[in-house]
Amino acid sequence: MSDKVTNIVLVGVGGQGILLAAEILSETFMLAGFDVKKSEIHGMSQRGGSVVSHVRYGKEVFSPMVPEGDGDILFGFELMESYRHLSLLKPGGTVVVNDLCIAPPSVLIGQDEYPAGMALKIQEVCPDCLLVDGQNLAIQAGNARAANTVLLGAVSKRLDIEEKYWIEAIEKMVPKKALEVNLKAFQMGRGLK
């Protein structure tokens, strides 16, 4: 096992299921035999605020926080939040982002406009960017609420971890009745180029 620590930053809006996705990632890496650390701020997360979760794995991980500018993958659940946190990513890092805009409070009340062209701006800074239509793919998989799992599938394809560990983690963390749809959603994400 190399000494390299892999850094993933998950960003989005409170209530989007970011914490669960981070749990599944961490569980997968542990099952695959790595040291894992994960850090996030919760408490306010259900109130629609900006949410950031750090997940790191490798032979030995020290800080639970991804050092600024060392992120290997930015796993974005929302466009503006992904753009906001690009500075956590290393030069040449990878972005996997949900093609979704959620208006923040100042936009909701008509005070600000949601910044235009977010996806393009992300691609300008970070050419290795996969834009995922999570919602539609999840509907195809059988439930719009499985969008996160589609994204997770796309992220999994970019990490050198055996598929069986992903499946095992999903089976452990996702409620039984939603499992079939989520496994399908995961595979759809994994199939994205």
């Binding site: 809006v13 605020g49 050092p67 500018g69 060392d70 500075s87 290393k90 923040p104 910044p115």
Partner: peptide, 28 residues
């Protein structure tokens, strides 16, 4: 943070990408 410790000791930091000012997203 790891970055703030690096900075305190004068170690090179990864230059953060410049990002324009965005509307904030406080909890509601």
């Amino acid at each position: 943070t790891p970055g703030r410790v690096r900075k305190a000791f004068g170690l090179p930091e990864n230059a953060p990408s410049t990002v324009e000012k965005l509307p904030g997203r406080p909890p509601n």
